[in-house]
Design a protein around this nucleic acid. Structure first.
Lengths: 231, 231
DNA sequence: GATTGGATCGTACATTGTACGATTAAATTG
DNA sequence: CAATTTAATCGTACAATGTACGATCCAATC
């Protein structure tokens, strides 16, 4: 039932009547492929959100029948797994000019990680599934390599990696889920004000009203790296 | 369409024939209520997981018809929101003996936070929705108060809170999603071994094979708190 | 030409959330 | 007490959705 790797490229004649001319239809129908399915799924998810991805709708976009997808993909879950990992492809410069500025290296890696996911907010919602695709693993590998290149003790390496991972995942999921529309923001503010008697500290610090997500992410990351750095 | 707060307790006679004796049926039918619905939903989620929660099944457990739930609850989403927040109820000691050991206070608060969610692994999957229920806000409030009692500068307070929040959320989601069965663990290990050529650093550090999640959480949290502490 | 296997797709079905309205019981009013 | 309103329950029905099954078609191979 699985298509596996597909090195051959097919042509699709239209199987209708005889073609009078050489190219009766300029519409060259593109064949399905796993890559095309995943790419189109990402498009659809970007456009319609997580709930907007239906197998029929995806097939429509691909100009195919709904059931044709199942030749290439086991089920919808797999589509989501693949879409998630595809978003995590890293196109950054692997070799920066400075070979030993490990801290900046880590910071920009993690900022890119977060940004890649926030470009596709649905991806954050997919994180709670155990999804270690190749791109995810690739990013972990890079992070791991950077850190071991720094002065971090061998015994603390895994803890450091997981801490940074946790931080990035938490920040990304939080940011994505707090991405309120204008109306929602007003409503939340009012609700919070009305409840500020119960939560005085939060209300006072305006914790939920701060807009500078990027800055907060960066500053918190700096604190974490301070703690991880050999003093 | 909403029941709102329901202070009255109802009896349910059985509306069948006349009751010959005082208690013809020892089965006293308990009336529905938001509390009962949410509590039963948590039970069902614990037993069957996120996909196991269907409105009909939930109603069955409650001895009610499926549509009866909708008098108390707008829709299934709300049930999930309420179930999530209900799991976050904090029953910890608010006043510990040591009034000024803020660091231990924060650590145990956050450990309890994580533990409360891991007791109901499905709750981690629900985090990506914007869910600031009263219990969630209560925990944020407590954390906020603890930190401002410590020596952390006012300007860094919100960053500190969000950092700790991110860390806890990331760690919890990760832990919950990596909770492999025995078979899965073996499979993952093999897969990783076969791919260790592509990810040598990860494979070498046995990052994905470490079992001491609690210890790793604690040690990483210590690093983060080191970074946040005024030096 | 016959056969095989890769790929596509139409039909059908089971599952699920929930809209709608009927029905009943309890509270309130006259 | 009777009449009416409101709170609460539930049966039926429907639309949406994932996907099992099998038919079909086409290119490649024998």
């Amino acid at each position: 039932m699985a298509a596996k790797s597909n090195g051959a490229q097919n042509k699709r004649p239209q199987g209708r009547s005889v073609q009078l001319e050489s190219t009766p239809e300029p519409r060259e129908v593109v064949p399905l492929s796993l890559e095309r399915i995943v790419a189109t799924a990402v498009e659809l998810l970007d456009a319609e959100g997580l709930d907007g991805l239906k197998m029929r709708r995806l097939a429509d976009r691909l100009g195919a029948g709904a059931m044709s997808l199942y030749w290439h993909v086991d089920n919808k879950e797999k589509v989501l797994d693949l879409a998630l990992d595809s978003v995590l492809g890293y196109r950054g410069l692997l070799q920066t000019v400075e070979p030993h500025d490990w801290r900046n290296e880590v910071v920009s890696m993690l900022e890119d990680w977060r940004a890649s996911m926030l470009r596709h907010p649905w991806s954050a919602s997919l994180l709670p599934r155990r999804a270690l695709g190749p791109n995810m693993l690739g990013r972990l590998e890079m992070l791991s390599k950077s850190l071991s290149g720094a002065g971090i003790a061998e015994a603390n390496l895994n803890v450091a990696i997981w801490s940074l991972w946790n931080y990035v995942m938490g920040a990304t999921i939080t940011r994505a889920s707090f991405d309120l529309s204008e109306d929602e923001r007003v409503a939340a503010q009012q609700q919070l004000a009305s409840l500020s008697e119960h939560y005085p500290t939060i209300a006072g610090s305006r914790l939920l009203l701060d807009d500078d997500w990027d800055g907060t992410f960066r500053r918190g990351l700096d604190f974490l790296l301070d703690g991880l750095s050999p003093r």
